[in-house]
Nucleic acid binder design. Structure first.
Lengths: 159, 159
DNA sequence: GCAAAGTTGATAAAAATACTCGGGATTAAG
DNA sequence: CTTAATCCCGAGTATTTTTATCAACTTTGC
């Protein structure tokens, strides 16, 4: 039950963006430096965020990324789903197609457990918005400083 | 946010055990056949369950496994934790030792999210007992038949 | 035109996962 | 006491997933 670095870095990165976009489009280079995540990896993460419609990009010189919606409308579930794919403890709760391949046809005790986990987690993550995380991070004073260095253990850092 | 096959197979296996132990110690061979999980893999899973005190073993001919406690006292959290390790979306919620290595010293918005997930999940999983799963599976009639073939996608089956 | 930025696809390295294998120890039954 | 059934344990391996990195390309402001 771990969240991969995609989700962990990505959430940090989009909070960083939310905290800075008042200045206009934010290039990944900036986020990379503040969050100590390689620019190239961030590119991958923001590609996912963009395809999910959470951020929009402005190309060319002085370009960068902006939130595509107000932070109040973006939830942690949106963000983690964009980065890690659907919340599904097991494949059989992912889609009906896959469920059909299962000989139990859904009459399976364990499946009920996976569905319970999925629904519980979705509700929880949907209840927290990016706006709340942004506000909270700003309460601590200089947000950029606080999370300047990796908060995650397996961050290799920018080279 | 996936549960590995250890957790998925293991939960099925211990439900199977709960459903059959009224007959005495159940050898893994039996569970292996009913659940279509290789005996050798089951050995690994039951080693974990035994070390966590959830099951006890009887060695020698006519040996096998028994629950070490009444099913009412065993929760899904106990089972999944035994099989997959502690529920921790990120390392920084795992132990104080690891947290100390984090430059933020815990003042980190994302960490709050991971703690929230952890606590929510633990409470949820602790609220479901093996007794409940057992009862539910028996309501469907012949439990053994119903879950005879893998309910999981990446089960290679017994050779 | 040039430099700053996003876009894309390939690929490589590392880690975790999902098993398999072989031998050893224990014990009930005949 | 022998045999077969069973658990026990440590290695080893194959596969998949994760975590990146790289290079080439496109877009655009100045």
């Amino acid at each position: 039950m771990r969240i991969s670095t995609r989700g962990r870095y990505g959430l940090r990165a989009i909070i960083d963006l939310a905290n800075n976009e008042y200045r206009g489009a934010i290039p990944l280079r900036e986020i990379s430096q503040r969050q100590n995540i390689s620019e190239q990896y961030l590119e991958q993460l923001f590609a996912s965020l963009r395809k999910s419609g959470l951020v929009k990009s402005i190309r060319g010189a002085h370009g960068g990324y902006l939130l595509n919606d107000s932070p109040e409308k973006i939830t942690v579930k949106d963000i983690l789903t964009a980065l890690e794919g659907p919340i599904a403890p097991a494949d059989c709760v992912l889609s009906e197609d896959i469920l059909e391949k299962c000989n139990n046809g859904g009459n399976c005790v364990t499946r009920k457990v996976w569905i319970m986990i999925k629904e519980n987690l979705e509700e929880l993550l949907d209840s927290v918005t990016l706006a709340e995380l942004k506000a909270e991070s700003q309460n601590w004073g200089d947000y950029d400083q606080l999370i300047s260095y990796s908060s995650d253990m397996n961050n290799k850092g920018v080279k």
